[in-house]
């Protein structure tokens, strides 16, 4: 691994392992993974259920501590960062989108989007928040609470919330997992546009259709990287996944 790759990658995993449990019941969810997620690219992580893809994402985002190895966000070593540093990173350099939206039900769409900025001690201007909501096509739903929005709309609010801080990397864990196909397509179109504009995205998915929208697909099995596809279509991704699920 050269200095070159470290700085050009948005996120670098170097010899990362994560074990859950002890003794004979121990599970190596991530097993000695070395991997770059390129800057300005959209990478999908796929694998059979239980292959460790979510754990890999959590480790890459600094949400889960690693047992061995190093995780770098740009040049910042996440494995050495304390809780306060990680909190600051979540406010400024990392964005999250999850399957279950995870919006705060008490707050309106607008307030949810403004939340990361307010937590960072900034007074977000209404125009910035509205512009971010506008970018996900929801400018007219700013005053609605999550329960008044459809699943697809809630996920777009979650994306707006993740993007409002202009993060270096957007981590997405099954972002279309809870959506119908139309809503999923809207969300994927949005993410594609973001990636085309230079946003680094790391996404875990089990949907070959979603993975095919990414620039590259990484396959995981038993906690190890086993395969990689670049610029594949949905059929190729599905065939490859089926092969690894066998």
């Amino acid at each position: 691994m050269t200095t070159m790759t470290t700085t050009s990658a948005a996120v670098t995993l170097h010899g990362v392992s994560r074990v859950f449990g002890r003794g004979p019941a121990a599970v190596r969810a991530v097993d000695d993974v070395t991997l770059d997620f390129p800057r300005g690219g959209w990478t999908a992580v796929m694998g059979p259920s239980g292959s460790g893809k979510s754990t890999l994402l959590h480790c890459a985002a600094g949400l889960e501590r690693v047992d061995t190895g190093r995780v770098l966000l740009g040049d910042t070593d996440l494995t050495a960062a304390g809780d306060a540093d990680l909190t600051a990173l979540r406010r400024t350099r990392i964005g999250f989108v999850f399957q279950s939206f995870n919006l705060i039900g008490a707050l309106t769409a607008e307030q949810n989007v403004a939340l990361p900025l307010r937590l960072a001690g900034k007074r977000p201007s209404r125009s910035v928040v509205r512009a971010t909501l506008d970018a996900v096509g929801l400018a007219d739903r700013a005053r609605h609470k999550p329960r008044e929005l459809s699943g697809g709309q809630q996920q777009r609010v979650a994306i707006a919330r993740a993007m409002v801080t202009r993060p270096e990397v957007l981590f997405a864990d099954e972002p279309t997992g809870a959506l119908d196909s139309t809503a999923a397509r809207t969300v994927l179109d949005l993410m594609r546009a973001m990636a085309d504009a230079g946003q680094s995205i790391v996404m875990v998915t089990h949907d070959p259709g979603a993975a095919a929208r990414a620039d590259a697909v990484v396959f995981l099995r038993d906690g190890r990287v086993v395969d990689r596809l670049i610029g594949a279509d949905a059929r190729e991704v599905a065939d490859r996944l089926a092969a690894w699920e066998r």
């Binding site: 949400l63 809780d83 306060a84 909190t87 600051a88 979540r90 406010r91 400024t92 999250f96 995870n102 705060i104 939340l115 990361p116 937590l119 960072a120 919330r161 801080t165």
Partner: peptide
């Protein structure tokens, strides 16, 4: 769960 969510979007322990 609510509090963890707050932490997820950048809330500090102090907050």
């Amino acid at each position: 769960r609510d509090l963890a969510l707050l932490r997820l979007v950048g809330g500090s322990r102090r907050q």
